[in-house]
């Protein structure tokens, strides 16, 4: 049964990969890669239960954080071609 959940996650990952290869703009690709990262977190957790080794959850926890930071960094880099300086213009634009 848990294998069926893992299969559903893998199917969704395949859909996300399809969008990240096809997606016309770079933003589609970032979106798909972000969703893929979230699905990786779920897959790691489910695999931990499937193989009865719950230590895998630590990896999932760290992956969730790194996935978020990676998405923010790539969005910001694509937006400004620069990672250091805050945005010019409005002071609300820190992210």
């Amino acid at each position: 049964m848990m294998a069926a959940v893992a299969l559903a996650v893998l199917v969704t990952m395949a859909l996300a990969v399809f969008r990240s290869i096809k997606g016309p703009t770079v933003y589609d690709r970032i979106l798909a890669v972000n969703a893929f990262g979230t699905l990786t977190v779920v897959l790691i957790s489910v695999y931990g239960f499937l193989s009865e080794r719950p230590e895998f959850l630590d990896l999932a926890l760290v992956y969730a954080l790194i996935n978020f930071i990676g998405t923010i960094a790539v969005s910001k880099y694509v937006e400004f071609s620069h990672m250091g300086r805050p945005t010019g213009g409005d002071e609300l634009g820190d992210i």
């Binding site: 933003y27 979230t38 998405t71 969005s75 910001k76 694509v78 937006e79 992210i95």
Partner: peptide, 17 residues
Amino acid sequence: FILYTSPTATHALARAA
């Protein structure tokens, strides 16, 4: 973590787009 970070990431991506 996911519930806190996903809207922020989505908003950053929307702004970038």
